[in-house]
Design a binder for these strands. Structure first.
Lengths: 237, 237
DNA sequence: GTGGCTCAGTGGCTGAGCCACTGAGCCTCT
DNA sequence: AGAGGCTCAGTGGCTCAGCCACTGAGCCAC
């Protein structure tokens, strides 16, 4: 089951290092980062590379750069958006996971209910197709991908583009640990666990959809949690 | 009431132009952007500036850059996260606003309920302080800022960091049109409209908090909508 | 004590250039 | 034919060297 190799650029490395330093508190919120010229010298790279890195960090909402002044660290816990989720889990340990699960569960139930209220016949068709993709997946990894597509389809069926964005943001939160979680998605099991949700939405039954979503999301939590804590422990060794 | 001047860098301009071209469909999802050297020539800037711009767009999830190949446009409507909200409203017109409002309303109610379930005495204290900040604000702009802090405080009280991120993401969505919306936040009116929500959370009454949140959020929708459509019409002229 | 000046420090942006990777087309050997 | 290897043009990754523009602190003159 070959996976595409992860390409890591210099900027990726620099971003990760600086990000880590910020999260670890080496540069507390409100303080200035060292000047670009000094960072470049310290890390042994050009200012251009540092600049590119800082552009990323600024886009992430971690810093604010001002001409003639410097890059000031922002308080991302108070003012950061969902963009920070993808790397925050890996960088702060398992403490964040219960929060992620709770958000996934409550918002998932909300979205499922709304989708059931608004599903059209062709939506039912698409959902069943996606469910079939899960069931006939040839590996857990494929089933995992197909499962995500079910989530996206449900969000799309709400007819609300913002819910699609929200769903994607939460799904993106798992992206860095995606392959770790594959093992939790046995095709058969996942498909049968998802079936009640798909049918409730197809039938246009909001109550049943909400319940089914809660049941499904809860059921997947503990296997995911186990896999992730195992991985985090491994990384500590 | 002087506002800090907006500094616009070359990269800001380039980002906005390229973003606009992508959203407008000049570069459809799946296609490659022109090479950096050509973009640099076309726009009359250096490759370094183009590169910085592309780094931003990549962070935004709009493109995917691969060494030796180019920058491929991603389908942000299907796979984009909440990061795109801030500029999407301005770039696609008022069509997105009802979706934003619905998300704000339903998630706001959810968060309010959860905050009421978990509020501690000191949280009640903080909420009342924030409410007081709204009431005693010396201008609509100040009241608006204070109102946002109430939202952030409610999200914080849930004890779930992910809800804080979600709330911030939705609030960030308004950032570019922030000052346009100021007029909707008369200090007195806003404070009295928020009071039931604050009291319900302070009293630990989830049902009342949910209802109060829905009422408040609905009440603010039409003034905000009016201001925004007025602004969009003005921009068209 | 107000306003203007200077200056060191900092980010913004340029221009030129080399290196590394990708993919398509060709060529060989079987 | 087909499989494997080669070449090469095109593209992004990154460097080096440098000038310009902005900021803020300190000084000075009025």
């Amino acid at each position: 089951m070959p996976e595409p190799v992860e390409r890591v650029t210099l900027i990726d490395v620099l971003e990760s290092r600086l990000r880590g330093d910020i999260v670890a508190g080496l540069y507390p919120p409100g303080t200035l980062l060292p000047p670009e010229r000094k960072l470049a010298e310290d890390y042994g790279v050009t200012r251009a590379s540092i600049k590119n890195t800082l552009v990323r960090l600024e886009q992430l909402g971690l810093i604010e750069t001002r001409h003639g002044v410097g890059s000031r660290v922002r308080d991302f816990r108070s003012y950061g958006g969902t963009e920070v989720l993808p790397w925050l889990v890996g960088q702060t340990g398992a403490g964040l996971l219960p929060d992620v699960f709770e958000a996934r569960r409550t918002i998932g139930a909300l979205v499922a209910r709304m989708a059931a209220e608004r599903a059209k016949p062709e939506d039912a068709l698409e959902l069943r197709m996606r469910l079939n993709d899960v069931e006939t997946a040839k590996s857990a990894a494929e089933a995992h991908d197909a499962e995500n597509e079910v989530h996206r389809a449900v969000a799309r069926i709400t007819g609300n583009q913002v819910f699609r964005f929200l769903a994607n943001s939460l799904l993106n939160g798992y992206e860095p640990v995606r392959r770790t979680l594959d093992a939790a998605f046995d095709p058969q099991w996942t498909a049968s666990a998802l079936a009640p949700l798909v049918e409730a939405i197809a039938a246009g039954d909001p109550e049943a959809a909400e319940t089914a979503a809660l049941t499904y999301l809860r059921a997947t939590e503990s296997p995911m949690l186990n896999l992730l804590t195992m991985r985090l422990e491994e990384e500590e060794r």
